[in-house]
Simulated assay, not measured.
Amino acid sequence: MRVKERTHKYIMLFVGAVVSLLWIYPFYLVLVNSLKTKSGIFESTLGLPSVPTLENYPIAFEEMDFILTFFNSIVITGGSIFIIVIFTSMAGYALSRKPGKASTFIYLLFAICMLIPFQSIMIPLISIFGAVDLLNRTGLAIMYLGLGSSLAVFLYVGAMKGIPKALDEAAIIDGCNRFQVYWYIMLPMLKSTTVTVIVLNAIWFWNDYLLPSLVINKEGMYTIPLRTFYFFGEYSTQWHLALAALVIAMIPIIILYMFLQRYIIDGISEGAVK
Rank of each mutant, 00 (worst) to 15 (best):
I253D: 10
T37E: 04
L48D: 00
T88F: 01
V18C: 12
V197K: 07
L54K: 03
G146Q: 05
D133C: 00
F70I: 10
P99R: 09
T53Y: 02
S50L: 09
I84Y: 04
M258T: 13
G130K: 11
V132S: 07
I163D: 02
P52N: 06
A249R: 03
S50E: 15
P99D: 08
S50Q: 12
S44R: 07
Q119P: 00
L167R: 03
G148C: 11
I123W: 09
M258I: 14
I128A: 11
E55M: 09
S89H: 07
I172C: 05
F259N: 11
D133A: 10
F118E: 15
L95R: 04
D133Q: 11
K101L: 11
Y144Q: 06
M258H: 04
G130A: 09
K4N: 07
F70Y: 13
S73Q: 09
P52Y: 01
V85T: 09
F42N: 10
E5T: 11
L260N: 11
A60N: 03
W239P: 02
A245N: 05
Y144V: 05
N33G: 05
G79N: 04
V15Q: 06
Y222H: 14
C176S: 15
G146E: 06
L256W: 09
I76L: 15
T77K: 03
L115F: 12
I106E: 01
F14Q: 06
L46E: 00
V15G: 05
Y25I: 11
I121R: 11
E270Q: 15
K38E: 15
P99N: 08
T45N: 00
